[in-house]
Amino acid sequence: MSADFLARALVPVASPADARATAAALESYLDRDSTVVAIHVVEKAGGAPDKASVEQRELDAEAAFDAFEERLGDGAGVERDLRYGTDVVATIVGGGHDHDASAIVFTPRGGSRWVQLLTGDVTRRLVEESDLPVVVLPDVEEES
């Protein structure tokens, strides 16, 4: 029997745009039995002042969750999880264990080497550091 990686998918959504793109890529792979947990991590500086107000980023996270649910439709029964952490990747993986996720599922966000260097390449680190299965979905063209 093969494992169903999308039985309980933990889907990191970083922003409204990312949430829409991920939902579009994910949509066709979901079946009736799949459950989806959308997770967003508010990155904390752990002692230094944050770049943006926590409340501001919480609002943005809500917008991302909304965009994600809207794209997937009501039937999908998306659960939301908003977390805070100094290490985005570790927090996502921790969330995966807490939710008993079958896999962490996301679409890579591209970006130049330079940008990835500055922002800490979450894609690569997720793939390398996660002890849960990681499913990388191809980014489908977003119809407008």
Partner: peptide, 27 residues
């Protein structure tokens, strides 16, 4: 940036200024 955000929240300032960057998560 926090003062700007708070002003936008109270609609004293255009909220356009307070958009969080898609990738960098900064205002």
């Amino acid at each position: 940036a926090r003062v700007n955000f708070a002003m936008g929240r109270d609609r004293i300032l255009v909220n356009w200024l307070n958009e969080v960057h898609d990738r960098f998560r900064t205002p």
